[in-house]
Write a protein that binds this DNA or RNA. Structure first.
Lengths: 262, 262
DNA sequence: CATAACAGTTTTCAATTCGAAAACGTAGAA
DNA sequence: TTCTACGTTTTCGAATTGAAAACTGTTATG
């Protein structure tokens, strides 16, 4: 068994896995990987016969998860629909969206709203100000927590043993010169995040990009974080602008208050 | 067999359905419906024993589709992640997103980008201008085509037999005083959409809300449509503003051109 | 504190179902 | 036409699922 202290550990193996379901999930995963495929391609990629693949795909299709066009099967937009439902249940999304919009138009920057799942950050929403940069991040994207502002804002308010577990699971891979790659530095950084009540990213994941993030924690429970992203030239050249930091922090606080007093 | 002239009919029953997969899909559907549930609740709702439910949920969990918190199971954000991947493969999204942003900041309104799947419209993106209304529609949402501007812009460029099939499948339910509820009127309206090259919605789905939509069709293939939504007072009180219509139409054309000449 | 009630997990094994293999159908190429 | 390449369907033996019951853990109650 796994030390599932938070009830959130995913790495547990089911001890009576439903193999047939797993086959369908592998198929879904492959369709995503290949952006759609024909049956004989899937036959090469997965250890299933074409008859079996056909049965699974037909089943997924009648339920709307897969679409077929000229013998090519693709994942349908039903997963987008489902994802929309899941997202709408996050209070941080419901209440954060309008505040993120406002922060974006006030600052002109790119604003991100994200939460943590399974030791990763998941982007729930983006709002674009007038001068917003175009980034590789999009709604639904999953990133490690150690080298982004939002991630550090979240980590700072998770119990230390949880942070350890996450680092064990995902490591601290170096992505730029500034990426934090050892635990000691990370924990010091998290301490300073707690003191300042905001986190920063000085080109730690992407060259030329800086971020400021603030945690969203009604009742001291960390639900996620909000951040602004901008080119280093505009954001972090000589220390972070106090006014901007203030705007991010107070937006986070407003969201937390809205969540608390529904 | 079904008359699957477009290769897109979903209503086909698989003739060797994978029952185990279907059970997992029903579970997923129920978790969505209930916004998460405990095993004994699912036992009441589905015709499965708790042992079986447990096996399925554990399997979905080890693959990251489901999250467990204090004996409550919920769909995870993995479906949002998957949905993001699916969406990013739509050229109308890739190229439409920046143009939708521009249209939103130029007009100050709510801008929608949608495509058709299985006879429904699916929202792919929304951009919010300064005065954008707050609507019930969100990314991923599915609506019928007959009473929204985007829907009519799409229907107008689908083959007539396809339109017939879609009306057979989804009907023409009345949602406001202005909803088109008979085929003849609908086909006349579609003819006029083709003449004008844009479609409108005058409170046909929502009281007080009007929309203008233009089809996106590189190479005469209809990929979706773009629309602006605003209160009747601002948009449709005395005929639609020619300049606004022009902005929507030219945005749609720009997107089509971008798609065509990558 | 003991006990009851309840819900989740695990085990066992018979019934179900899946899917390998082969046959069949269909579309395009030569 | 025949050939080839895939997709689809069928059949039936083998693998897997899940009903039922036992077990465990947790919360409520006397």
């Amino acid at each position: 068994m796994c030390l599932d202290t938070m009830g959130l550990c995913m790495t547990t193996e089911a001890n009576h896995p439903v193999r047939t379901t797993e086959k369908s999930l592998h198929l879904i995963e492959k369709l995503r990987e290949l952006d759609g495929a024909r049956i004989h391609e899937l036959e090469d990629e997965l250890e299933m016969t074409k008859g079996a693949i056909h049965n699974h795909l037909s089943t997924l299709r009648t339920h709307g998860y897969v679409v077929k066009e000229d013998n090519e099967y693709r994942l349908s937009l039903k997963v987008l629909t489902l994802g929309g439902y899941v997202r709408s249940n996050y209070s941080i999304y419901q209440f954060g969206r309008p505040k993120a919009n406002k922060l974006a138009s006030d600052t002109g920057m790119l604003v991100n709203l994200a939460t943590e799942e399974n030791g990763q950050s998941v982007y729930l929403y983006q709002a674009r100000g007038e001068y917003a940069v175009n980034l590789d991040t999009q709604v639904g994207h999953r990133l490690r927590l150690h080298n982004i502002a939002i991630g550090k804002a979240i980590l700072a308010y998770l119990p230390a043993e949880r942070v350890e577990a996450i680092v064990d699971q995902w490591g601290l891979p170096k992505e730029t010169e500034n990426t934090i790659t050892d635990r000691e530095t990370l924990f010091e950084e998290l301490e300073s995040v707690r003191e300042q009540e905001f986190a920063t990213d000085l080109e730690e994941r992407t060259e030329g990009l800086c971020c400021i993030a603030a945690p969203i924690r009604p009742d001291n429970e960390i639900l996620g974080a909000i951040s602004i992203s901008a080119p280093t030239s505009r954001l972090g050249n000589q220390g972070f602008d106090d006014e901007l930091v203030g705007q991010v922090k107070s937006t986070a606080n407003e969201i937390a208050l809205d969540i608390k007093y529904v």
